[in-house]
Nucleic acid binder design. Structure first.
Lengths: 346, 346
DNA sequence: CTCAATCATGGAAACGTTTCCAAGAATAGC
DNA sequence: GCTATTCTTGGAAACGTTTCCATGATTGAG
């Protein structure tokens, strides 16, 4: 009887509900969890009290007892990168609908933050994990990940023992490079993310493949992986343009990097498509509305997020079965605009 | 003794640690929580076992007992909006550093998702809440919020009883409008977000104020709040341009909306700055690199996120004191580029 | 009409921590 | 050298659920 009259400043517990309704705690739990074997009258009586008291179950207690936290971890290097934020947005929508809450962990490319997040995932007994593209040479992180027995999906990333959802960056890189080669370009610069991140790795592979198929050598000096942040692309582009054998075409990421590249072109007095051809990867307002508009390799970011979320939910439901870990690929699409031309005759 | 030998597939608990170290559970807890009154030898012995077993405390149990979840809620309408994602990114960094995990709730402007998220905040006993700009006419949400006794910060939003961090959208709207009026414009269209969202409300207020100070009437037909998503600005701009008294200047948001506006101008054969002047709110790559570059009202998004996070942390630490709920304003800055001119003589 | 099966409910033991309290050991004050 | 304090540790009671088990009531089969 001690808790029949709940003190006003304390949130009501399931015992308060049980006491006020004159039933047992277990009945309240059963009703709240829609279990069978509960009479309609009991249900009505309990729900009335629940509403009156504004009872809301304490999810930590639920998690402790039932071993499900209804929480999904989402590890991403940089949520302010529009490529990621669009995928996260779509995934969150899908997971929210299924009753899960997303826990965000932005790693900012630091391995120490990655391992810290994995630790948080373990302590909080999260139910699943979405792992976005990141540096796959981080060994501490990889080994921390290996100890994690948890449904997991890689997004533009390979995760041992887990399926991944990816855009076909290799195919995209191939298509774009082949297109430029077809126009007659022989020195094509590729500005992409760090080499150890899957999309970049794949992109470079596609770039090489296109060269090989055309019987051309690859000049690795033209492949310039960019470190994150700042407008580092700027100096790389300047260096290339001012070098002995400047490129006649540039492939760059469509995010901030494209803006840096355009700055670099401008400050070297070089115009596209007349002086140099330009293709970007990842469609943006800037690519669409620059003058001339920039030909772009694009793919469906939201769809990747959605598929990743759905696949994760399936794996959570199916438990240990469904060990199909084949990657799911989404196609890229090349949008031709007006930023490319045949290279200048010497 | 029953649990001295932990079964391999179960995660070790604090009892396992205690048993293996031959000490009491409470000692382990004390050591782990860095409490005073623990001898160095005990500390060393326990930590050795903790490391060997790979023990990680179950945060649900901690939350249940200690009434702190180390979790911050983050309610935002749309995480894929770059304005929001940059603020969230900065806030997350600050909160992560303090040991908190961010729980993301994207509401997509739906009140039902807002109230659902508040419910999640309550059930999970989150320690604080970051509330980003949203429709302030949502009454169910507002009343749900009122029952929430929890440190809370509004970001570009007013929250009763809580401080807010905001850009000075009113001042910014005023400055931009005054600038255009100064150039001679008398019909200035304002395309902004929904009227019930604070930044828009304030912006419109600044816009009116500039008109009033100049002794001009405000034609409310020129103020066009835009519903979210899609390129709705497109049809509004077309309608204005084709109307009887088209505007000679347009103020628009710098996000996707700017692209829509540019499309609308293009498809009506109208060029800026010669035919019409253009200013956007919120700096983007597009605004910087469009030709001509677009004059922009900007402010420090990351700083807003950081300040919001820090203020929230203070409030969590200070408990019920520190009831200073005055809003913190950040200034806007007008960047003059090449998108404005005096209006055409008739 | 009886016995077995099912239904509806209650009681109590978990889940894995933290924290309160008690108690013995060590230290300090005089 | 004795008492009053402070240190160090252990035991046990919470925290608020879910779930297992037991029990009485109801139903169904023959």
């Amino acid at each position: 009887m001690a808790r029949t009259q709940p003190t006003s400043f304390l949130r009501p517990t399931i015992r308060d509900v049980a006491a006020q309704a004159g039933v047992s705690v277990s009945s309240v739990s059963r009703v709240l969890n829609r279990e069978p074997h509960t009479s309609p009258e009991l249900h009505a009586r309990i729900m009335r009290v629940v509403d009156r008291l504004g009872f809301e179950p304490h999810s930590a207690a639920q998690a402790l007892r039932s071993r499900a936290s209804n929480t999904i971890g989402c590890m991403v290097s940089d949520i302010s990168n529009p490529l990621y934020s669009e995928m996260v947005n779509a995934a969150e929508e899908e997971l929210q609908r299924a009753g899960y809450v997303l826990m965000l962990g932005a790693t900012r490319h630091a391995e120490e933050r990655e391992t810290a997040f994995i630790s948080a995932v373990r302590r909080r007994r999260m139910d699943g994990l979405l792992l976005f593209a990141g540096d796959n040479t981080h060994k501490d992180f990889t080994s921390a990940l290996a100890t994690l027995d948890l449904p997991c999906i890689g997004i533009d990333r390979e995760v041992p023992g887990a399926p991944s959802v990816r855009a076909d960056h290799r195919g995209g890189g191939f298509e774009v490079t082949r297109y430029l080669i077809g126009l007659g370009h022989r020195r094509i610069a590729l500005l992409t993310g760090p080499a150890a991140v899957l999309p970049s790795t794949e992109r470079v592979a596609g770039y090489r493949q296109a060269h090989i198929e055309a019987g051309l050598d690859v000049d690795l000096d033209l492949v310039r992986p960019q470190v994150h942040g700042s407008g580092i692309a700027f100096s790389d582009v300047c260096q290339l343009l001012q070098g002995p054998a400047p490129p006649t075409a540039i492939i760059t990421l469509g995010t901030h990097m494209l803006a840096s590249v355009m700055d670099a072109l401008a400050s070297n007095g070089i115009r596209y498509p007349s002086d140099i051809s330009l293709v970007c990867i990842g469609d943006t307002d800037l690519a669409r509305h620059a003058t001339p508009a920039i030909s772009t390799l694009t793919w469906d970011l939201s769809e990747i997020g959605r598929i990743a979320a759905k696949t994760l939910l399936e794996r959570i439901r199916d438990g240990d079965q469904a060990q199909d870990t084949r990657p799911i690929y989404l196609p890229t699409r090349f949008i031709l605009r007006h930023s490319c031309a045949e290279p200048r005759a010497k």
